[in-house]
């Protein structure tokens, strides 16, 4: 898996949503806790489907959570 060119604000969003745990977020979007952890450390770029699920869960647009770094 390539080093992430896309960073994200998932950790921040969890914090502002009643300090949701990684496990809770993982269960809600249908992935493992390890994937959420890798996402937050920018070690993994999620699929479009997972990115949309996360954005929808937090009620934000996809570009507000996932930032493309040129």
């Amino acid at each position: 898996m390539a080093k992430a060119e896309i960073t994200n604000k998932v950790r921040e969003m969890r914090f502002f949503n009643n300090e949701m745990t990684q496990q809770e977020l993982a269960d809600k979007v249908g992935c493992t806790r390890q994937t959420i952890n890798a996402l937050e450390q920018n070690k993994y770029v999620p699929s479009l489907s997972l990115a949309f699920k996360i954005s929808k869960l937090f009620g934000k647009g996809i570009e507000e959570i996932f930032i493309y770094n040129k």
Partner: peptide
């Protein structure tokens, strides 16, 4: 609920 996800499948594929 979730045992394997897309990241695991990607790891397996590689």
């Amino acid at each position: 609920k979730i045992v394997f996800d897309e990241r695991d499948k990607e790891t397996q594929r590689i």
